[in-house]
Design a protein around this nucleic acid. Structure first.
Lengths: 267, 267
DNA sequence: CTCTTTTGTGATTAAACGGGTTACTTTTCG
DNA sequence: CGAAAAGTAACCCGTTTAATCACAAAAGAG
């Protein structure tokens, strides 16, 4: 279909992956050209012809483009699968090096004056999902989880939920019927499904800026609450741990009340 | 061991992964601190205190750091495994988006005047390895491969070699005894092992700037030759395809001669 | 062979960005 | 209350990068 939009997106993503604008444009240009010269590229991509050469050189060094040293020289993009694989390899290497470099480290003395009432804020859907998974994996007694949006029910989360130990109570709820059903089929092991939570669902979606994302209470001592920006779909969470934590105490009460009355609507 | 060097490397890698210097320093600082304030971080990381806040905000948005909104606010790094997982997720997402965006594209008309004699140059170890794997996978009759350095015998390459079809002749050689043996145990299926290639090995390693990397000839119609910069270990390759290709013809002759006489040193 | 066009390199300008600093307000605590 | 610490915001300056320009080498037309 070669929608002009795909091209723009590709350029943007390539920049997020570390390429400069000219480099990104040239690569995308070559991706639709099988083989091309600096002139052709320049016309197609709006990159000044004299700058195409630099851009290509960088791309070549990264293994994304091949050069034929003829006159005029010809360029071509590495096949897409090879290119993405190469990018993957590069990033995997880097993440691995980071991990190696940092796990030899950790811990400088720390005078702890653990000021109870620790509430931490975090952002980013990937990060919050990873934390969610982690907390559920670490559960030893009970997991209470309520999801507010379908997009949060990922493969990884389902896998994690299906792997909780046998001694762990799994209580799951959702804010909509359809999500409820999806969860029920995806995670048949859950001991209890919480229903009647529709009241939590924001009704005045117009004025609302955020919707409920997740509610997670693990072993009655750790809580995570997240919300979703309705426009960007970005996720933000707060996270508290420790039995004595004020937020956890309140959450415990609220959930006991709320979920019970929700479950049993008559008072 | 917390060698000061690991810290530097971590900072560098984080920058390659897209963080700014301050952000990288702050993250590494927090990684050795369990929990810290702007002041502590500033002292430990050499980042001006007043800029710590900006850096942390970015890190938080990326899901790498948690903030406790107390006064003074406290920061802490997400656990290392969670952080690396989050980074992986992010990059996987991006590469996937790139792939999706580009494979709807490809191909604008192309008046082909395939000027035989196509020799393409490419760089980057990952890219060259991916191409090598690809070419070997596509082989239908014969693969001739000579490796010049142990670092080139990767898991992926071994896997690829062990998966060639049954009808494909696999001729493998190496420039050193030890590498030869490694290959022989890793790829027992190879039909012939080429030995006696030591003469190809550069002897005057002092004056040499590059060493032989790979020699690959597939189905007598596609050739890839690479060299390794002795200092940076970076790899560069030239790549030609097509039966009529001059380079391929020459390579075919050279290999027939060279490998045969090598195999049978008398003449 | 000569003249023109194309191709390639290098230098230059202007704007954006990132690192580093300073000024100033607010909060905390003795 | 006063001093120190915490937090915000603005600024400066060097580097990077997008964008142009000048020019030499090569290719192709006549």
């Amino acid at each position: 279909m070669t929608t002009n939009n795909s091209l723009e997106e590709a350029i943007e993503v390539l920049q997020q992956l570390g390429l400069k604008e000219y480099e990104a444009r040239c690569f995308v240009g070559l991706s639709r050209l099988h083989t091309g010269t600096a002139k052709q590229l320049s016309e197609m991509t709006e990159v000044p012809r004299t700058r195409v050469y630099d851009a290509i050189r960088v791309l070549e060094a990264q293994g994304l483009v091949e050069i034929q040293h003829s006159s005029p020289q010809q360029f071509r993009a590495v096949p897409l699968d090879e290119a993405t694989e190469t990018l993957r390899d590069q990033y995997e290497n880097r993440v691995e090096r980071l991990h190696d470099a940092l796990d030899t480290v950790e811990i400088v003395e720390h005078k702890d004056e653990t000021p109870v009432q620790q509430i931490w804020a975090m952002s980013g859907r990937d990060a919050i999902e990873n934390r969610t998974d982690q907390l559920i994996e670490d559960a030893s007694e009970e997991v209470v989880l309520v999801l507010g949006d379908e997009s949060l029910l990922t493969e990884d989360l389902v896998a994690t939920l299906n792997e909780v130990g046998n001694g762990v109570d799994l209580l799951i709820g959702a804010l909509t019927e359809s999500l409820q059903e999806q969860i029920q089929t995806a995670v048949p092991d859950a001991m209890t499904f919480i229903s009647g939570l529709e009241w939590l669902h924001g009704e005045n979606a117009t004025a609302d800026e955020t919707a409920i994302g997740r509610l997670l209470l693990v072993d009655r001592s750790t809580i995570l609450v997240s919300s979703l920006m309705t426009d960007t779909k970005e996720e933000q969470a707060i996270f508290g741990e420790g039995f004595g934590n004020g937020l956890v105490v309140i959450a415990r009460r609220l959930m006991a009340e709320g979920l019970l009355t929700a479950h049993d609507p008559k008072q």
